[in-house]
Amino acid sequence: MTNFGEILFFNLDSAYSFIIYENTSELPVNWDELAISTIFLSTQYFTVLEKSSPENMICYFIGIFENEKLIGIALSQFLDLKKLESFGDRDKRTKTKIRNFIFKNFASQVLVLGNNMLTGQNSYTLMNGFDDKKAIQTLYKAASSIKTNFANKGIKVHITTYKDFNKEEIKNFDIPELNKEHQFSTQPNMIFTIDENWKTEQNYIDSLSKKYRDQYKRARKKASLLEKRKLSLAEIIRLEDEIYNLYLHVAQNAPFNTFFLPRNHFKVFKETFKDKFLFYGYFIGDKLIGFNTLIKNGNVMETYFLGYDESIQREYMLYLNMLYDMIAYSINKNFDEIVFARTALEIKSSVGAKPQKMYGIISHTNPFLNSFMSRIFKYLEPETTWQQRNPFK
């Protein structure tokens, strides 16, 4: 089943119990009955991770039980940052070099309670009527078991972190086991709320102030020479090398990375999720110059990874046009909101996304270093200065 042995299962009268699974084939048959709130805790999504997670990532699936009844499900990911050749090549500042040195030497083995590939609360979900704080205590014990398992193999987990929670959700982490750990706030999650009165893209355009209507018109004019196509699985497979090179160009030029997707990731996602996973390619003639991906998550549209040629992106305002295309599709298909996630905060706010502050908990295994975590974290989390825009009348 797994190699966790005796530390696999934890139980106290005052707490829930847990089982840690390493393969989707081991999951309880009723697992997906609890994954209603988000597909990112479903066996279907875990299958994608199983087949195409980043090379430096190991995923663990955690079942939370009351007696023998499955009442909660969770995801944990172990990241080995030493396997990365680069954390991101964009910034060459001294502070960035210090941060990279810290990661390489003191924080390269990271255990995440949650999903490091996504933004938002994709850590766990619990059946109605059960105690969130008791569930967090159980996840803390599960994390301890995972760390013990690594220690038995001679691998020391440096950093443990719980991510991403809003201001209400983070209150559940006010438990004795975590009261000495550092609570942090990261870059916000950019959420675009679709007005219930918008039935078409034109309704959205009409709601913009003149300055941002002009921005919309300018961007659309620039994109008039591009062809946008929804790609099938066969096309994704045929263009896999071009797709990966475009993804890698964007990823490597980000200020910071803790993983890189494998080459087959988008193919596996499309094979698994079919019409729930949308892949749009942007072409000049037959040449793919950019792409973006979307995931249908109930009534929420989740933006996923993208890629583009930076030199062409600027000329055609491609990134901005991608945002407008995502908004248009989501309005036309009656979604309630779009999760635009982190990065490019200002341009996302210029199309109407609002920042949602996100919180987490982080600790270092070394007690001395952990006492300075509030200072160390400033080097671990890149700072972003940006101006929020309001494009609406």
Rank of each mutant, 00 (worst) to 15 (best):
A135T: 15
I136Y: 08
Q137V: 03
Q137D: 00
T138E: 00
Y140G: 02
A142W: 01
A143T: 06
A143S: 15
S144I: 07
I146M: 00
I146Y: 08
T148G: 06
F150C: 01
F150Y: 15
F150G: 03
N152T: 05
N152F: 11
K153C: 03
K153D: 13
I155R: 06
H158R: 02
T161S: 11
Y162M: 07
Y162R: 01
K163A: 01
D164A: 04
N166D: 15
N166R: 02
K167G: 00
K167Q: 09
E168T: 10
I170G: 05
I170R: 09
K171P: 07
K171S: 11
N172Q: 02
D174A: 14
D174P: 03
I175R: 10
P176F: 06
P176K: 05
E177T: 07
E177N: 01
N179W: 01
N179F: 10
N179E: 14
E181V: 03
H182K: 12
H182C: 13
Q183L: 08
S185I: 12
T186Q: 10
T186Y: 12
T186L: 12
Q187T: 14
P188N: 04
P188L: 04
M190G: 01
M190S: 11
M190A: 00
I191Y: 07
F192H: 00
T193N: 14
D195R: 11
E196V: 07
W198P: 04
K199P: 02
K199L: 08
T200F: 04
E201L: 10
N203W: 00
Y204P: 05
S207N: 15
S207A: 13
L208W: 12
L208A: 08
S209K: 15
Y212W: 10
Y212E: 00
D214L: 12
Y216T: 10
K217E: 06
K217C: 04
A219M: 06
R220F: 09
K221G: 08
K222E: 07
A223C: 10
A223K: 09
L226K: 04
L226Q: 05
E227K: 14
E227S: 11
K228H: 03
K228S: 09
S232C: 02
S232Q: 11
L233N: 13
L233E: 14
A234M: 11
A234K: 15
E235C: 04
E235L: 09
I236Y: 01
I236D: 06
I236Q: 09
I237Y: 08
R238Y: 07
L239D: 08
L239M: 10
E240V: 04
D241I: 08
D241H: 10
I243G: 02
I243F: 09
Y244G: 05
N245F: 12
N245H: 15
L246V: 06
Y247M: 03
Y247Q: 03
L248T: 09
V250I: 13
V250N: 13
V250Q: 03
Q252D: 01
Q252T: 09
N253H: 14
A254P: 02
P255C: 04
P255I: 07
F256W: 12
T258G: 03
F260R: 02
L261N: 09
P262K: 12
P262A: 01
N264C: 05
H265N: 12
F266D: 10
K270I: 06
K270Q: 13
E271K: 14
T272F: 00
F273H: 10
F273Q: 03
K274T: 13
K274Y: 11
